[in-house]
């Protein structure tokens, strides 16, 4: 039942992504700021795949709204992103797809957990990472089951 539920979510995600990518973005529909950022690509815009048009228009919108400091931080993250192996990037994108489909409260809870994790001392984070990576699939499953159980109990309370 659980597996079926996950399958439906993944199928819906894939469908919604495909539908979104099918719809291109007309150059004229871009804001003046977006057009300014994307000016160098104006001539080739109409021949771009719809998915690329979507990403570029979103990216240009985001870039235009960033402060210099935010831009610098984003460029640093981009450098890190590029260094990741393809498989890891794919895994992150998949998780992000599932994350977007979660209820707002669940997303908030995950963000809070993430903040908690980031506040840990760097050495401890590294040790936890290593420890988690060394776990067998069965050990990970046990840990996740315990988490689910605790979450259910805390929700009931």
């Amino acid at each position: 039942m659980k597996a079926r539920h996950i399958f439906v979510i993944v199928a819906l995600l894939a469908l919604s992504t495909a539908m979104a990518e099918d719809t291109g973005v007309a150059w004229d529909s871009l804001s003046a700021q977006q057009q300014q950022v994307l000016d160098r690509f104006a001539d080739s815009w109409d021949s771009m795949p719809p998915g690329r048009q979507q990403r570029l228009s979103t990216g240009a919108h985001r870039w235009a709204g960033m402060t210099p400091r935010e831009r610098e931080a984003a460029q640093t993250r981009f450098a890190l992103w590029r260094e990741l192996p393809d498989e890891r990037r794919e895994r992150i994108r998949e998780r992000y797809g599932v994350f977007r489909d979660l209820p707002a409260a669940e997303q908030r809870r995950i963000r809070e957990n993430f903040r908690h994790f980031r506040q840990l001392h760097r050495d401890r984070r590294e040790r936890l990472r290593d420890r988690y990576r060394d776990m067998t699939p069965e050990q990970r499953q046990r840990l996740h089951d315990r988490m689910q159980q605790r979450r259910r109990i805390s929700t009931r309370d």
Binding site: R95, F99, I110, E112, H116, F117, R118, L120, L128, Y132
Partner: peptide, 10 residues
């Protein structure tokens, strides 16, 4: 980091 971030607070 989601998996670890999920695990640690629990």
């Amino acid at each position: 980091e989601q998996v670890l971030a999920e695990v640690v607070p629990q």
